[in-house]
Nucleic acid binder design. Structure first.
Lengths: 140, 140
DNA sequence: AGAAATTTGTCCGTATGTATC
DNA sequence: AGATACATACGGACAAATTTC
């Protein structure tokens, strides 16, 4: 079989479908995703492709993977309050756009955006903090 | 050949070496990294492993990759002037730590940090904004 | 303008190592 | 100890974007 990936690559299509299940609640927060081999059978894709799809969700912060255990969904913490102590080093939240951000996106100040904060540590010590912002559901 | 990855996996070792070259200036900002096939020969690793190593650097924001062109180290705009900053989608600046950030780093509020903002566009439209923060001269 | 070469992107199949149950 | 599941690594093949000639 050739490698036709008209439009979207397979791993993104698979990632989209899995994201759909997670966000629709079909796969509840905190529960395990199907195993890699199960997804391999279901989507008739190679394991590498399935793993690539899962990697997409992991980068988005939607799931976490534990060696030898599996990949599980993680709840999105909405209504983030800055004083709220973060339990995780990777959390999602909603936040109102400040002047800078609002101008960049071309929206009004205060528009609600999706934010994600990721804390990077080395030997337990915080090395850097990265925050990403984007609009709800940009055409992907 | 077996797959021994005692201690660190190969792709991380390769990533570490490449990072070293970038930070030492051996690969200057804005210049192209060796091609994947060149790295494959040099490190005697498979292309997949080399690509995984590059992916690490990409996640760290050290390099950017363009289809058909190559992977280049990110040009660092040591900018501080807002006029130049406004023109670029990638600017560095200094900023005082707010309560949130200060707590994460374990420093006092108001401590001066390095910040970097990167604007990601698709077809000219802002898709996301990423802000990173870290201390001056971390171990490295 | 266009063809060829270069380079990254995607996908497959397989094998082996390592962690968890 | 055995079964299950994720992590790493290899090699090959074709697709797509860019650069070069």
């Amino acid at each position: 079989m050739p490698t036709p990936h008209y439009g979207q690559p397979r791993y993104r299509v698979i990632a989209d479908q899995l994201r759909e299940r997670i966000e629709s609640g079909s796969i509840p927060p905190g529960s395990l995703l199907p195993t890699e081999s199960a997804l391999t059978s279901e989507f008739r894709a190679s394991r590498g492709t399935v793993r690539q799809a899962i990697a997409v969700l992991r980068e988005e912060g939607l799931v976490t993977t534990e060696h030898g255990r599996g990949t599980s969904t993680r709840p999105i913490t909405l209504g983030h309050d800055s004083k709220q102590a973060a339990k995780s080093d990777n959390e999602r939240f909603e936040i109102a756009a400040d002047a800078d951000i609002a101008k960049l996106f071309g929206v009004e100040i205060g528009t609600i955006l999706i934010g994600q904060q990721q804390v990077h540590r080395r030997n337990g010590v915080v090395e850097s903090v990265v925050r990403g912002y984007w609009l709800h559901r940009p055409g992907q």
